[in-house]
Design a protein around this nucleic acid. Structure first.
Lengths: 139, 139
DNA sequence: GTCTAACTTTAGACATATTCTAATTAGTAA
DNA sequence: TTACTAATTAGAATATGTCTAAAGTTAGAC
């Protein structure tokens, strides 16, 4: 059993999620890969390993994984939903020109930022979506 | 001609966008209304005014309006895309429990926040998406 | 190890959301 | 008005996501 598999296994147990081959496959794919995979991409990848895997299972797995924080849906615009392994937090950058979605290394909001605007809510996390022109299009 | 219509008209001209009845209807609906309308809701509203309006036109109009900044698609998760008039900037809050999407009054990031993470990109704007439990579910 | 109950997966139908296409209509500028 | 171009229409086509019933797995009790 690979090191990755062991750590995923531990992650499942910690999360109290029943480990299945399909959930491994989905999470492993997300953990290994460039971010922001669509359900369709995940389905194909998982399907290469196990040709019987079904679309519904990919969605089920993604929901299960997202439910315990092992994966998350990226708040994106248009088209298919995109998912990523929920390992390290980060922000996102969306290019107006070419539409690419890039990761931005994590940084915290200075303590208290916006506190006055958020009254009554319990904040568990946040993400900043920047828009503009990416380094490539900027040239 | 109403005051709203006049200001929308001016907005179209400024944006260099050909003003059509359907685009007026879509933008007017967004400008008047609670935020975060789905294309379907917009379609029905526009359709009440002009029963011949088509879905495709609603999508076309939304894209045209978004292209010039008069409307924007809200980065949301799952289900149908949501749109809002692009008038005042604000942040968003997404409730883990009930899934509701709320506006959070605008506040600026302190100058220089995250600058080190964003090198090479031209930032035109940003939005913070908070997650947690809304005031209602918190009770 | 075997049994059982609960959970998960499967295939494919179904439902919903969005885009495309060809023909028609409306806006613009001369 | 006329000619030109862009936008709209209806509905088909596509893409995305969910549901269902039957079959397969897993965890835990024995």
């Amino acid at each position: 059993m690979s090191v990755l598999r062991e750590s995923l296994d531990a992650a499942f147990r910690t999360a109290g999620l029943r480990p299945t081959a399909q959930r491994y496959a989905v999470l492993e794919f997300l953990a290994r890969r460039p971010r922001h995979a669509t359900a369709e991409e995940i389905f194909h990848a998982v399907n290469r390993a196990d040709p019987r895997a079904s679309r519904a299972t990919v969605y089920n797995s993604l929901r299960a994984l997202a439910g315990v924080g092992l994966a998350r849906e990226v708040a994106s615009e248009g088209g298919a939903a995109r998912f990523e392994a929920g390992l390290q937090p980060h922000h996102h950058f969306l290019c107006d020109q070419c539409g690419s979605l890039e990761d931005v290394p994590w940084f915290e909001l200075p303590a208290g930022t916006g506190a006055a605007s958020l009254g009554g809510r319990a904040i568990r996390g946040y993400e900043i979506v920047f828009r503009g022109t990416c380094a490539n299009c900027e040239k």
